[in-house]
């Protein structure tokens, strides 16, 4: 049984048919063609699938897709503004905050949720904000540095 769901994806109105029980991650990737959120576990444990729903981070693998009806979903696919990278993206690039890059889209979303709420976070606040996101290539130090750097850049701009 498929049912229709309409929501806002990175600012655009999106309508998609979802299978009963489908999670948001699968619907974004297969239904909407937004491949930026990644599957790492399907258990909420890794954060690779993190997206923002109404501005707050959620692990999309555990979100029943139909519950986002009428809400706004943001993914890394919509992070940059045209050709210009988001300050977080720029900081991740310049700070070598990704190796294999598989955790990166989720990290960026968790970081964006933080900076949107708290433009000048402390280091422990950054660590807390990405505590649900695993990076197996062990890039936590550069990732935390990059998020702090993005906050500084934004503050300066």
């Amino acid at each position: 049984m498929k049912s229709p769901v309409t929501f806002w994806l990175n600012g655009s109105e999106t309508a998609v048919f979802v299978d009963a029980g489908a999670n948001l991650l699968d619907v974004l990737r297969r239904g909407c063609g937004d491949l930026s959120p990644k599957y790492g576990c399907g258990q909420g444990g890794c954060g690779a699938c993190t997206v923002l729903i109404d501005g707050e981070p959620h692990v999309s693998c555990l979100v029943l897709a139909e519950t986002v009806a009428g809400r706004s979903v943001e993914t890394t696919g919509g992070l940059s503004n045209g050709p210009d990278p988001h300050p977080l993206q720029r900081a991740f690039m310049e700070g070598f905050a990704a190796q294999c890059g598989y955790c990166t889209p989720g990290m960026l979303m968790a970081a964006k949720a933080l900076l949107d709420r708290n433009p000048s976070p402390s280091r422990p606040e950054v660590e807390e904000a990405i505590s649900g996101n695993l990076c197996r290539c062990t890039g936590y130090e550069p990732i935390v540095d990059a998020i702090l750097e993005a906050a500084r850049q934004r503050g300066a701009a």
Binding site: L35, S36, T75, S80, L88, F92, E94, F96, Y102
Partner: peptide
């Protein structure tokens, strides 16, 4: 410091992993 050649794909979520 050096900018990795594949990192733009990583930070935009456009790097094509096998499932992408």
């Amino acid at each position: 410091p050096i900018i990795r050649q594949d990192i733009l794909g990583h930070v935009t979520g456009r790097s094509k992993f096998y499932d992408d």
